[in-house]
Simulated assay, not measured.
Amino acid sequence: MYQGNSHRYEQMTYNRAGYSGLKLSALGLGLWHNFGSVDPFEKQKKLIHQAFDLGITYYDLANNYGPIPGSAEENFGKIMQDDMRGHRYEMVIATKAGYEMWPGPYGNWASRKSIIASADQSLRRLQLDYVDIFYSHRPDPHTPAEETALALNQLVLEGKALYIGISNYSGSQTARMVRIFQELKTPFIVNQVRYNMFNRDVEQGLFPVLKREKKAAVAFSPLSQGLLTDKYLNGIPADSRAKKTTSPFLHPTQVEQTLVTVRQLNEVAKKRGQTLAEMALAWNLRQNAVASVIVGASRPEQLVDNCQALENLEFSTSELSLIDKILAEQADIAWKAK
Rank of each mutant, 00 (worst) to 15 (best):
I236D: 04
I236A: 06
P237R: 11
P237Q: 07
P237F: 04
A238P: 01
S240K: 11
R241G: 01
A242M: 08
A242F: 01
A242Y: 07
A242I: 06
K244Y: 09
K244N: 14
K244T: 02
T246W: 01
S247I: 01
S247Q: 02
S247W: 01
P248C: 05
P248A: 03
F249C: 02
L250S: 00
L250W: 00
L250F: 00
H251L: 00
H251N: 08
P252G: 00
T253M: 06
V255D: 01
V255C: 03
V255F: 05
T258I: 07
L259F: 01
L259H: 08
V260Y: 11
V260L: 14
T261S: 14
T261Q: 07
T261K: 04
R263G: 07
R263H: 12
L265V: 06
L265M: 06
N266A: 15
E267A: 14
V268E: 08
V268M: 07
V268I: 13
V268H: 09
A269C: 09
K270G: 08
R272S: 05
G273P: 12
Q274C: 10
T275K: 11
T275E: 09
T275A: 06
L276F: 10
A277E: 05
E278I: 00
A280W: 07
A280F: 08
L281G: 04
L281P: 02
A282H: 06
A282K: 05
A282L: 07
W283T: 02
N284A: 12
N284R: 10
N284Y: 08
N284Q: 14
L285E: 10
L285V: 04
L285T: 08
Q287N: 14
N288S: 15
N288H: 14
A289H: 01
V290E: 03
V290R: 03
V290H: 05
V290C: 03
A291N: 12
A291Q: 09
A291D: 12
S292R: 10
V293I: 01
I294K: 02
I294Q: 03
I294T: 03
V295L: 03
V295I: 15
V295Q: 00
A297N: 12
S298C: 01
S298H: 09
R299L: 02
P300I: 05
P300C: 08
P300F: 04
E301S: 14
E301M: 11
Q302I: 08
L303A: 12
L303W: 08
V304C: 11
D305K: 13
D305T: 12
D305Y: 05
D305M: 11
D305C: 02
N306W: 01
N306S: 13
Q308T: 15
A309P: 03
L310F: 06
L310A: 10
N312C: 09
N312Q: 14
N312E: 09
E314P: 02
F315P: 00
S316I: 07
S318I: 06
S318R: 06
E319Y: 10
E319N: 03
L320N: 10
S321Y: 01
L322R: 13
L322E: 15
L322T: 13
I323P: 02
I326M: 05
L327F: 06
L327K: 10
L327I: 15
